[in-house]
Amino acid sequence: MTDFTPNEMMTIAASRALTSKDVCFVGIGAPSAACNVARLTHAPDITLIYESGTIGTAPDVLPLSIGDGELCETAVTTVAVPEMFRYWLQGGRITVGFLGAAQIDRFGNINTTVIGDYHNPKVRLPGGGGAPEIATSCGEIYITLKQAKRSMVEKIDFFTSFGHGEGGDHRERLGIKTKGPTKLITDLALWEPDPVTKEFTVVSLHPGVTRDMVQETCGWTVKFADDLKETPAPTADELKTLRDLNERTQRAHHGKAA
């Protein structure tokens, strides 16, 4: 077996959540890598959509932004941004939204807006972009992020996008008809919400990861599933696909500087 890093395990585990049948709204960063690894391995027919309006895109390198030209050149079609959000996202055409997060709580609520008070922030983060409506209009939401106490917190500072709120049937109470966050993929584990409370629960530990390691990097008391599994290690093919993609990407984004 080849050696792999926790980051590589995270991206590959995230890629496995996707299938060829999915129509996936891709967030930039970690989600973008996972979605393209899926497309290049087990899910060749997946439809990847970026919020710049590119539908069914198949980039050779990972885009630095959601609007790199290659996304358009390799897309089935490119639509205007208002159409993207109205017909395709709000219209209910998208099965999975794949998001990253700066801060997340145990119910999959996400903050990418501010650390501290909104009007007097300690750190002003970029904000929501497409996420507030992706979180409520896609069939379901997958979230991927690296575990750390400052990002997996008891209470997020700002609800940029709504997950399961206070848990339980909070989404239904707000009239939201989609499933919300159903998978959380970190560098250490796979998490799924408890069917009733909706609290994210660890269902599978990545190879070599202990319960303590998951708890030490998480700001709330972690619940583990009774039948806790071990995530299969990355295959040689998955690793090669990811590394080749990263190498092509690195070359493309740094090579053209004047």
Binding site: F85, E133, F162, R171
Partner: peptide, 10 residues
Amino acid sequence: FFRGYKGADL
């Protein structure tokens, strides 16, 4: 008018 901002703090 659109379907948006459900549960969000903005």
